[in-house]
Amino acid sequence: MEEESQRILKYLTEVELAAEDVLSDKQQIVDLDIKRNRNREALNALRDDSPQSEDKVKVCFGSMFIKLPKATTKQMIQKDQAQLDKEISDLRKRLKAKVNHLNDLQGKPELRGYSLSPLSSDEMKAINSILKR
């Protein structure tokens, strides 16, 4: 009996761990997306290149504002943005494997067609005419 409950406990811990892993990844994607959107807003704000605007902007680093040239700031944010995009897509890729693992632990059937790579938009256009009926 003791052994049985130990086994169940171990199994439940495993499932909980896997689920926690999935949830934390999801949260991380959300956090990164918040950052990405804020960067996007900043880039939009920097786009204003009317002659009367200053060519230096104040950028907030932690608890400090530093005046930086516009062009450098833009470059900096763009680099950050590319980095964020990459991180999010990496996370999504890993998340898939984790969700599969979780389903596996819970004894749920594997999602069908989950691991397929997507069709290109041209190919999808052709297929869409079948689907829209």
Binding site: V30, D33, R36, N37, I130
Partner: peptide, 23 residues
């Protein structure tokens, strides 16, 4: 819920005959 910019994946099943017909 969650992030604003999402990736949506949809899995479709079509028959070979249906693909034949549109082509």
């Amino acid at each position: 819920e969650g992030e604003l910019q999402k990736r949506k994946e949809v899995v479709h099943t079509v028959s070979l005959h249906e693909i034949d017909v549109i082509n």
